[in-house]
Design a protein around this nucleic acid. Structure first.
Length: 280
DNA sequence: TAGAGCCTGCGG
DNA sequence: CCGCAGGCTCTA
């Protein structure tokens, strides 16, 4: 479900949890795809009694810092994960797998029907990249500079298509299936173009497109195609502004382009582009 | 470097 | 009933 703009939207709406103390921890015991059953004892040891010092994001991962503790809580929402801050007495949603009860009568709850996500512990104190999931991440476009030169260099070393390169979290961290198609369309780059064939001018355009697409989506609170909501349960508005994703058969929204959006499959993922204006 | 696999839910 | 879903990992 969530890509960088959605995860960042969740991060921002988690801010009210900062400064609250963790009073207790509950877990469902069911395995999550990315790290198996949540380490309940470890989580309790790391978090119980600690004040939440901040919530950070790195690619599609959220990092919950705990004041004075040597571990932080790492969360990935997978396809269907949600983090919500709710009153402790609110009924628990189905598929809730982790609950942190907080001071002030609130709970921070992680629910995830498909269980493709992750809730884990990582070293704190600036050593979070020792966690294997964070160790392999590339540049986060909102944190570091994703420039044309950087993309050009990364693409040149790859034998993959540009669509796959954008989905590679080890290169650009945070772009997922929606924004990969959107950025390629905005830059006029065909999704099937091989990385080695991406010239520097198009790399510049693509770098700009990635930043623009992510920033605009974030301004609109993310894309809610079906069920994405932030930590307050509010859906994002960006679905209305998608230019190609999910719009197969529609006229290309580019000015003076008479093409129609096509749906193809690249590496098993739906891909949308305009054959008329995304050309080699 | 494709493809399968992991899960549940939804819409046609 | 079938296909599809915003992610990621492991396998041949």
């Amino acid at each position: 479900m969530p890509e960088l703009p959605e995860v960042e939207t969740v991060r921002r709406t988690l801010e009210p949890a900062v400064g609250r103390r963790v009073r207790g921890v509950w877990t469902s015991g069911l395995p999550l795809r990315l790290n198996g059953p949540v380490d309940r004892a470890g989580l309790a040891r790391a978090a119980t009694g600690a004040v939440i010092a901040g919530v950070r994001r790195r690619g599609k991962y959220l990092l919950i810092d705990l004041a004075g503790r040597d571990r932080l809580i790492l969360v990935h929402l997978g396809m269907s994960g949600r983090l919500r801050i709710v009153p402790a007495r609110a009924p628990r949603a189905p598929h809730t797998h982790v609950v942190l009860s907080l001071t002030g009568g609130r709970e921070l709850r992680y629910s995830d029907p498909r269980r493709f996500g992750l809730v884990d512990l990582a070293p704190a104190g600036g050593r979070e990249r020792e966690h294997p999931s964070l160790a392999v991440l590339g540049r986060d476009p909102l944190v570091e500079r994703v420039t044309g030169a950087f993309l050009h260099e990364a693409a040149r070393r790859s034998r993959q298509t540009m669509k796959s390169i954008l989905l590679d979290q080890g290169i650009v961290a945070g772009v997922g299936n929606i924004y990969a198609s959107e950025a390629l369309w905005l830059a006029g780059v065909p999704p099937t173009l091989r990385g080695v064939r991406l010239d520097r001018a198009r790399a510049d355009a693509l770098a700009r497109a990635i930043r623009a697409v992510l920033r605009r989506a974030l301004e609109r609170g993310g894309t809610s195609l079906r069920d994405f909501v932030d930590a307050d349960g509010v859906a994002g508005e960006n679905a209305d502004y998608l230019r190609v994703y999910g719009r197969a058969g529609a006229p290309c929204p580019r000015r003076a382009c008479s093409g129609r959006i096509r749906r193809t499959v690249i590496q098993g993922r739906a891909t949308f582009h305009c054959p008329a204006c995304q050309r080699r």
